[in-house]
Nucleic acid binder design. Sequence first.
DNA 1: AGTGAGATTTAGAATAATTCCAATAAACTA
DNA 2: TAGTTTATTGGAATTATTCTAAATCTCACT
Lengths: 141, 141
Amino acid sequence: MSDTSTATPESLSQTLAESGLRSTPQRELVFNVLLKKRDHPTADEVFARVKAEMPTISLATVYNCLETLVQCRVVRAVNFERGPTRYCPNQKPHAHFHDESTGSTHDIDLPPGLLDQVKSILPDGYDSNSVEIIFRGKAKD
Amino acid sequence: MSDTSTATPESLSQTLAESGLRSTPQRELVFNVLLKKRDHPTADEVFARVKAEMPTISLATVYNCLETLVQCRVVRAVNFERGPTRYCPNQKPHAHFHDESTGSTHDIDLPPGLLDQVKSILPDGYDSNSVEIIFRGKAKD
DNA sequence: AGTGAGATTTAGAATAATTCCAATAAACTA
DNA sequence: TAGTTTATTGGAATTATTCTAAATCTCACT
Ligand SMILES: [Mn+2]
Ligand SMILES: [Mn+2]
Ligand SMILES: [Zn+2]
Ligand SMILES: [Zn+2]
């Protein structure tokens, strides 16, 4: 059973190509680091993880790569409070749960139809192409 | 018919007092400016509007007042993308619609029960005390 | 009314995250 | 392989916000 929720490493170079962008070791590594530990890291955290494998990479490049991955829609940028942007490789539509006691962020699967249901509250004249749902609270564990 | 969705100017000093804080001309004015034009201004925008009436106020004070109003829960801080925090005096539970073509933000009323319905998707062990819903798209007008 | 304690405001310095820039390097194309 | 375009890099610049320390204000108490 293959995971359709995220692009696989092999498919990244294809996705990049489809956008007229090149596959580079930096882009591949940044993406792999996001896939490996899905804790919604900041750019700085991605930088630290990536540097362990590619010590010469620069922070500017990490920002560039993340931006590129977001443009290609293989990664989502998440902002739920002032503070560094966080990055998420989960391609499946999902909500975010921000645990206020630990500071950690969890993905919450959405039951089919929920997004449409939520979109249906929009008055006439509002045409939405994306819905973001953010929970805040405390999670067991 | 009184508007129960936002605190009235008179009630602010009471709300402040309940939190052990003082009512000051700066706090009152910052709050009134938010009530007067509900376009989710940034701190800088609030500063500009407030300065028109109180030319000696400082930006630091505007930040301080906004922070105070958020603590007292008479104002909501809104962050849906990297970029300056925006401030909203609508106390009623509501969603935000971010119009990508104009950059403007609209409040969307929530039908009763919707928040509970959305909260009900949370798996066991997740205890949420707030839900935020953000739409992105284009609005007529 | 006068005094002192604590709260608030203020200007400017400091910080954090991100973006910009101009030079180098790498990748693709012909 | 030469030429062209795209990507990476380190450092400077920018933006939004927070911090700091001094001045001012408010309130409670006399
Ligand atoms: Mn970051
Ligand atoms: Mn601002
Ligand atoms: Zn996520
Ligand atoms: Zn609002």
